Simulated assay, not measured.
Amino acid sequence: MRVGIVSDTHDDLAAVEAAVALFDREGVDAVVHCGDFVAPFSVTPFDGVGDGPDGGVDFYAVRGNNDGEWAVQSTVELFGTYLGEAGTLSFGCGAGGGSAGGADAVNVAVTHGTSGVVVDALVDCGDYDYVFHGHTHAHGVEERDGTVRVNPGGLPIPVDGADDAFRVAILDVGADADGAAGADAVTHHELDL
């Protein structure tokens, strides 16, 4: 199973469309947006990920600190699952794909990342295999005591430490991971805008 991870798209439709195109090419089974869509019009293109004979992919999103329009929630809920300020997911790798528990499932916590204290607490509590977050616009992956913190990155912004290009990430879970686990199962992709 492959999970696309994206954050901080900030109404940039070129970035959203580039992420959707990459996730389609890479054949992801689910997409997690770590917040900061900003307005509902930049949510709807994600409904097209994986549109084909078998239908679309599972879509999950959390609220970011710049998601000022509350209609973002209702727009996500038209085709996906809105997790609010934070949520947990379990991605399995059974024959049916999708989100499911099981012996080979990975447990994921998702938050926007506005509070570094909260992100660190989620990583350090030991309850999750992965913690996804955004907010900093700086991609990264870090493994601590068996939990992997993943920030896919975001649009480039003029802030110290932020990425100079738009990036997203893909997590390969289970059989799709080709033996990779933990931080090695995460791949960041730089997208041309």
Results as ranks from 00 to 15, higher is better:
L89V: 11
L89W: 01
L89Q: 11
L89K: 13
S90D: 10
S90R: 12
S90N: 04
F91D: 00
F91Y: 10
F91I: 07
F91P: 07
F91N: 03
G92K: 00
G92V: 03
G92D: 07
G92C: 02
C93S: 13
G94D: 09
G94H: 02
G94Y: 06
G94L: 01
A95I: 02
A95M: 05
G96D: 14
G96S: 07
G97Y: 03
G97E: 08
G98N: 09
G98H: 08
G98P: 10
S99R: 15
S99F: 08
A100S: 11
A100I: 00
A100M: 06
A100W: 00
A100R: 09
G101V: 09
G101T: 11
G102H: 03
G102C: 00
A103T: 09
D104A: 15
A105F: 07
A105I: 06
A105K: 08
A105G: 01
A105L: 02
A105P: 02
A105R: 03
V106W: 00
V106R: 06
N107I: 12
N107V: 13
V108R: 06
V108G: 06
V108P: 06
V108Y: 02
A109Y: 01
A109L: 05
A109R: 05
V110Q: 00
V110R: 00
T111H: 07
T111N: 05
H112S: 10
H112I: 13
H112Y: 11
T114F: 09
T114G: 13
T114M: 09
T114C: 12
T114N: 01
T114A: 12
T114L: 14
T114R: 07
S115A: 11
G116W: 04
G116K: 01
V117L: 08
V117Q: 00
V117S: 09
V117I: 09
V118S: 07
V118I: 11
V118R: 03
V118C: 04
V119I: 15
V119E: 05
V119F: 03
D120V: 13
D120M: 07
D120Y: 00
D120G: 08
A121L: 11
A121Q: 07
V123L: 08
V123H: 01
D124E: 06
D124A: 03
D124T: 15
C125H: 08
C125G: 15
C125N: 15
G126C: 00
G126Y: 00
G126N: 03
D127A: 05
Y128D: 08
Y128G: 08
Y128C: 02
D129W: 02
D129Y: 05
Y130E: 09
Y130L: 14
Y130R: 13
Y130N: 15
Y130H: 14
Y130G: 14
V131T: 10
F132H: 10
F132D: 13
F132P: 13
F132W: 10
F132N: 13
F132I: 14
F132C: 12
H133I: 13
H133L: 12
H133E: 11
H133G: 14
G134D: 13
G134K: 07
G134H: 07
G134N: 09
H135R: 01
H135T: 08
H135D: 11
H135A: 08
T136H: 02
T136K: 03
H137K: 04
A138C: 05
